[in-house]
Design a protein around this nucleic acid. Structure first.
Length: 483
RNA sequence: GGCGGGGUAGCAAAAUGGUUAUGCAGCGGAUUGCAAAUCCGUCUAUAGCGGUUCGAUUCCGCUCCCCGCCUCCA
């Protein structure tokens, strides 16, 4: 039985879907005014992992991850760049998709953009107004009356009194209560026409929170299973979503709330002011994408994750061990379940290399059972990965083809280990030497060894090592990998 | 100030009321012309103080320290 830590109840709970065998999951995605950073990478990888695990567990999953393509920062950035909102957002949406492909992220089933759901948002705001939860303020904004909603604060564990006590200096902006939030922002003169939609309350644009409520219920229904996002979205964003959705629909919105921990850099919060902000593309220039994915999955999704070169190098070494095992004992095609059953990928999935729709894993083996138990325990990927290492040891120890096949197929459920081992081990940053040069050096070394000229063979090996190439002799011959 | 999450060996990171986590690094051995890889063995833990218990790293309390949210933020 899968257990999920639910922020709403602050407990691990058995996962019982609203509809048997179906999972409907909504994750807050990116605001597209810049390149995705490592924090985004973690959200993408973590929920991709969950998505894969639901599928591997036999659920029918509908995964929605939205794109916020209208908001203050976008308008500001477009203004600075002197370009249209649409051009700006499309550019960063494309960049985001590129980053995702790099990280082996399966495309969500739906990727709705806020600007395409303005009608649904307006309908929802109207409903809130009818239900007495929304009001038109003097300044033209439509606000949510937080005090009219019973249970405001139930997700973040805050009470309105506490919030009021810790309230920051607030200019009066037409809200009847400082804690009220905007559903619909009236159009400003200095804003481009592009961001002005007609509405019963005058021209304007949606507030930030309403888009998720509207798109969630449109695509997944008024009541669905899982809603995820970064830990910081818990409040106010997700709290406000609950207020909107439950206020409008008068029923439970989401059963399980999942929040992933933050990424830190060298033990400091990643922020633009500290200048320690890393975009995904920057990191991918330096590290193999699978190493980054492995690095993220190696920590539990709810814990903090500290990014540093040392940790990435560590992750690289660990992943190298797994691939080395797979290189030593190649998975025989007839045993390679992960690839032999990949003939029916969904349209989405087929775009991602290494993804397999049909995992025909024998869950009755001890390793698979341990793996499953770990994953079922609130997606305990560190524990699941430990099982992978035990399998690698078995592969190396008893040359087990079965263990190798299992290693690869279990890896697939995490989106790992699906590449040709050689390609992984020899990939990465191009050194000064071409593959042909490396092979020539290896041939020269073998020749030297044959005449027992070890001084020469060792010299060649050392030279290659200095160029980042590690040689490995075995009975089958000499192979190389990048250090 | 309010709410929440943590402090595990050199580093990273799980788990657990009594029994090897795991990876990297270290040490010893096997293997190797020597290495690398691999295998075997091995050393470093549970912030501090109390309490519960036959027994606590694990449960409870207190102290110290770290972090997050309360403001846009993944």
């Amino acid at each position: 039985m899968l257990k999920i830590y639910n922020t709403l109840t602050r407990n691990k709970q058995d996962f019982i879907p609203v509809e048997p065998n179906k999972v409907r999951m909504y994750v807050c995605g990116m605001t597209v005014y810049d390149y995705c950073h490592l924090g985004h990478a973690r959200v993408m990888v973590v929920f991709d992992m969950a998505y894969r695990w639901f599928k591997a567990s036999g659920y029918d999953v509908i995964y929605v991850r939205n794109i916020t393509d209208i908001d203050d920062k976008i308008i500001k950035r477009a203004g600075e760049n002197k370009e249209s909102i649409h051009v700006l957002t499309q550019r960063f949406i494309d960049a985001m998709h590129e980053d995702e492909r790099g990280l082996g992220i399966l495309p969500p089933d739906f990727e709705p953009r806020a600007t395409q759901y303005v009608a649904q948002m307006l309908a929802m705001i109207a409903k809130l107004e009818t239900n007495g939860l929304a009001y038109l303020a003097a300044d033209g904004d439509v606000n949510y009356a937080v005090r009219k909603f019973d249970g405001y604060g139930k997700l973040s564990g805050k009470s309105l009194e506490d919030l009021r006590a810790g309230e920051r200096v607030n200019v009066n902006d037409g809200k009847s209560d400082p804690l009220d939030f905007v559903l619909w922002k009236h159009a400003r003169d200095d804003e481009p026409e592009e961001v002005k939609w007609p509405s019963p309350w005058g021209r304007g644009r949606p507030g930030w929170h309403i888009e998720c409520s509207a798109m969630g219920s449109e695509l997944l229904g008024k009541h669905f299973d899982i809603h995820g996002g970064g830990a910081d979205l818990q409040f106010p964003h997700h709290e406000n979503e609950i207020a909107q959705s439950e206020g409008a629909h008068q029923c439970q919105y989401v059963n399980y709330w999942m929040h992933n921990g933050f990424v830190r850099v060298d033990d400091e919060k990643m922020s633009k002011s500290l200048g320690n902000f890393f975009t995904i593309r920057e990191v991918l220039k330096k590290y193999d994408a699978e190493v980054v994915r492995f690095f993220i999955l190696r920590a539990h999704y709810r814990s903090q994750l500290n990014y540093s070169d040392a940790h990435l190098n560590d992750a690289k070494g660990a992943l190298t061990r797994l691939y080395t095992a797979l290189k030593t004992i190649p998975v025989r095609p007839e045993l390679d379940e992960t690839t032999s059953h990949s003939t029916r990928p969904s349209e989405n999935a087929s775009q991602v290399a290494g993804y397999v729709e049909g995992w025909h894993i024998d869950w009755n083996t001890p390793h698979a059972q341990r793996f499953k138990a770990a994953m079922d325990d609130d997606f305990n990927t560190p524990e699941a990965i430990a099982v992978l290492f035990d399998l690698a040891n078995e592969v190396n120890r008893i040359q087990s083809f079965d263990a190798a096949a299992q290693l690869k197929s279990l890896g697939a459920t995490l989106g790992l280990l699906q590449r040709d081992p050689q390609a992984f081990l020899q990939g990465g940053a191009e050194g000064d030497l071409s593959e042909a040069q490396i092979n020539a050096q290896i041939a020269a070394r073998i020749a030297a060894k044959q005449v027992k000229n070890y001084a020469e063979s060792d010299r060649i090996r050392k030279e290659l090592l200095e160029a980042g190439i590690v040689l490995e002799d075995s009975a089958a011959g000499t192979t190389w990998r990048r250090a």
